[in-house]
Design a protein around this nucleic acid. Structure first.
Lengths: 108, 108
DNA sequence: ACTATATTTCAACAAACCTTGAAATGAAAG
DNA sequence: CTTTCATTTCAAGGTTTGTTGAAATATAGT
């Protein structure tokens, strides 16, 4: 992952609406949700939801596929993993304190 | 860490200049660097560097301390850890694919 | 006190971002 | 082939964010 990729992903997630979308899609599981379902769940107009979904897909965080009239979005978990890895390794240099926080029993 | 805290930290890191500052400070080690040194290293004017350093400190990512005329900034590694943990747990629900990426030998 | 150095603060402006509502596209059904 | 439904696109407007350079603050040395 390049710095530019990381910046695009970070910018994308750093919006309240988009962070909600991410959490909603993670909770929804591997089948994802349609644009309309997402809009309702996060309380956004269709046009607003579409705008943010496009941003997240552009940043590589989501994939989409059309099924008849609806478009389903899913989280690209390896993209999320790559981002977190970038923060851990490229930004924090694998710092011990940081890594300790991420262990199942870690305390920050 | 609250969602608001995470959003502030993510917004802070999602700027090219600030991500560079973060990496520079991580590389510098526990003693940190002065505002002036950081400005030179990331190629910013003093005023621009100060603006971004204040943003990162406000987001909880940096701490600062004055030593005579200079002000040293350091990374708050536990804040970075808390952020990464938030992404892993609260956003990605500890998803296996995501976690696999973050292991030392993980491939994304 | 005066000067020099390090940093921050401020005002002005430019650029990027988000929201809104209306219009356009794409796909299915009558 | 017209209508309906799901979604996206677009233009307009408001808000936020970043940059610049000048002025202000803080600390130290002379």
């Amino acid at each position: 992952m390049t710095e530019a990729d990381a910046l695009a992903a970070l910018s994308s997630i750093s919006s309240e609406t988009r962070l909600r979308i991410l959490k909603t899609l993670v909770a929804a599981g591997p089948d994802g949700l349609t644009a309309g379902e997402i809009a309702v769940l996060v309380g956004a107009t269709p046009s607003r939801a579409s705008f943010h979904l496009a941003n997240m897909a552009e940043a590589g965080l989501l994939t989409s596929s059309r099924q008849s009239r609806q478009i389903s979005y899913r989280v690209d978990f390896s993209a999320m993993g790559a981002l977190i890895r970038y923060l851990l390794e490229d930004c924090c240099n694998n710092n011990d304190t940081v890594r300790a926080c991420c262990q199942p029993a870690g305390k920050c």
